[in-house]
């Protein structure tokens, strides 16, 4: 018998009586979160920055003031060509991205309870981008924020690779001292497009 059948046979013999799968009604966790302030507060607590902006046009200038010394930058948003200092077509191997200073990505889903922002690879062409970049900038509309993870998963359907990112990369592996900037991004900024100007 091959290993697969061996394992499956043994499980079949040893598993307990079947039991029903419970139905989860996420409304029992609802405490009426005010999602925008809750998202902002949580993201700041995990080391991220939140900057409200009132129009897409403000993205560019905001970026310049936030990270003035960036040289190698890329945005995957529409109408932000002036930000891009190179084209992805010129990248032969993902390794060539090692010097990337800023990556800017639009996200359509963020979670208030934990400051996490969801992006999947329909938003960025090379999977390593959000991890290898030194600084990560998300552009999010206020209406994209949901209260809890349960609501987030209701929205996540088709993707090949996707990730929730909550704050910059970090570690506390040396004597429990928190250090921001481990193997991934050194900083994370969310440009939050305020509701009344959302098209």
């Amino acid at each position: 018998m091959d290993s697969r059948s061996q394992i499956l046979t043994k499980i079949k013999a040893n598993k307990p009586e079947p039991m029903d799968l419970l139905h989860i009604d996420p409304s029992i966790f609802d405490e009426g979160l005010d999602v925008v302030p809750a998202f902002t507060k949580t993201l700041e607590a995990v080391g991220g920055n939140v900057c409200p902006i009132d129009s897409m046009e403000a993205v560019h200038s905001k970026l310049k003031t936030l990270l003035p010394n960036a040289r190698f930058t890329h945005s995957t948003l529409e109408n932000t060509h002036e930000i891009n200092t190179f084209s992805f077509d010129a990248i032969e191997r993902p390794h060539d991205l090692e010097d990337l200073d800023i990556l800017m990505v639009k996200s359509d889903l963020a979670v208030a309870e934990n400051g996490a922002v969801w992006i999947d690879d329909s938003k960025f062409p090379i999977r390593v981008l959000p991890f290898i970049t030194k600084h990560l900038v998300f552009v999010i509309e206020e209406k994209a924020i949901v209260p809890y993870m349960h609501q987030a998963y209701e929205k996540i359907r088709d993707f090949n690779f996707g990730v929730f990112i909550s704050g910059p990369s970090k570690t506390a592996d040396i004597e429990q001292a928190l250090v921001i900037g481990a193997q991934g991004a050194l900083s994370l900024t969310v440009l939050l497009l305020t509701a009344d100007t959302t098209p």
Partner: peptide, 21 residues
């Protein structure tokens, strides 16, 4: 994902929760 990081380190979620498909 709501349980894991809160129980582990008190973070509301780990920095990266990567979904490979």
């Amino acid at each position: 994902l709501r349980l894991l990081a809160r129980s582990a380190t008190g973070q509301p979620i780990t920095t990266y929760s990567s979904h490979f498909k």
